[in-house]
């Protein structure tokens, strides 16, 4: 309880501090370069200078924090990747060499690629289907709300939820995991699902699909609703049926949004960590890059060089999407 009070006090101090910073720095600027009461040329020169400085006052805290926490680490990681365990001895490319020959790394890359193929595809597909269907029925908003709900659940919480579903009891005893109960009900044999290589990864992916479908659905639903009614009405008059309208008229008009949803989920998948840690901790061939990196941060006292190399791999995989995003944003700004 004590540190909750400490936290609340921090909130107050933090907000007040930020407010005071902005207020005081602006006041200082106006004092240093007065224009309200100054006359003529001096006033206008001061005003010009103040206006050149003020944006940087507004952005200074953000720039400092972003530099220290996001920009500097990228550079530092590159530097670390050429250094040993503690980040002191220069070891050249040996971390990279280790990475290329390490079977666990290869396993992680393969798994990550599988995740990249399956999760965005399934989430987008289900999201699109639900968005399209739910808009046609009167209780669609309730349905969407329920499917959106897993978005609020932490990956760890979701892992517990699904671990319970995948739970395994030996054949003959009553299954308490829903999946095995269904399998047994239809006359099959129960399995310890999360220990079967390859398929266990798929079972982990299901968790992320379960979470992300709601996200895809919300975005795509908005995109579908923004399609001009006239184009659909025109297609109806042209004699297209429901499916044709959906695939030939509506989907082509929201390709851009589908791409955004897809890439957003892709980035998330690259960083997936909590689910694997909670469900298998990388056992039974389910290792992924983010979890592998986390392990190397602490394994054997921690190996910062190898950890940094893995982090760089994740970063490199994100870069194409980053460039695409920046490109799009710049076009919007124009």
């Amino acid at each position: 309880m004590g540190h909750l009070v400490y936290a609340l006090v921090t909130v107050v101090i933090g907000l007040a501090g930020a407010a005071i910073y902005f207020y005081a720095s602006n006041l200082l600027l106006d004092r240093a370069l007065p224009y309200r009461d100054a006359e003529g040329a001096r006033a206008s020169r001061n005003l010009r200078r103040a206006n050149a400085i003020r944006p940087w006052l507004f952005m200074l805290p953000a720039i400092v924090i972003l530099s220290v926490y996001l920009v500097y680490p990228v550079l530092e990681s590159i530097w670390l990747s050429f250094h040993g365990k503690a980040g002191i001895d220069f070891v050249g490319l040996s971390n990279y060499h280790w990475m290329l020959v390490d079977p666990e790394f290869r396993e992680s890359i393969v798994n990550n690629l599988l995740w990249l193929l399956i999760v965005p595809a399934l989430s987008t597909f289900f999201g699109l289907v639900i968005a399209a269907l739910a808009d046609r029925i009167w209780w669609g908003n309730i349905a969407k709300s329920l499917i959106f709900m897993p978005m609020a659940i932490s990956f760890v919480g979701a892992s517990v939820i699904w671990k319970f579903i995948y739970d395994f009891r030996p054949a003959g005893s009553e299954q308490i995991g829903l999946l095995n109960a269904v399998v047994v009900f239809f006359g099959g044999n129960p399995h310890a699902w999360i220990t079967i290589p390859f398929w266990n990864s798929v079972f982990l992916m299901v968790i992320l699909v379960w979470i992300q479908t709601g996200f895809a659905m919300v975005i795509l639903s908005a995109a579908l609703r923004s399609i001009p009614d006239e184009t659909i009405e025109a297609a109806v008059i042209d004699g297209a049926n429901g499916l044709q309208i959906f695939f030939k008229i509506m989907v082509p008009q929201i390709w851009g949004t589908i791409a955004v949803v897809w890439t957003t989920i892709t980035i998330l998948v690259l960083k997936v960590f909590d689910i694997v840690l909670a469900m298998t901790n990388g056992q039974w061939d389910t290792q992924v890059l983010a979890n592998l990196m986390f392990e190397w941060m602490f394994r054997g006292g921690g190996d910062f060089g190898r950890g940094a190399v893995i982090a760089l791999v994740i970063m490199v995989l994100v870069v194409p999407i980053m460039i695409w995003n920046i490109h799009n944003a710049r076009q919007e700004l124009r």
């Binding site: 309200r36 040329a41 006033a43 206008s44 005003l47 010009r48």
Partner: peptide, 8 residues
């Protein structure tokens, strides 16, 4: 008024 702010 070339350099005078609007309010002035």
């Amino acid at each position: 008024v070339n350099q005078v702010p609007p309010s002035k």
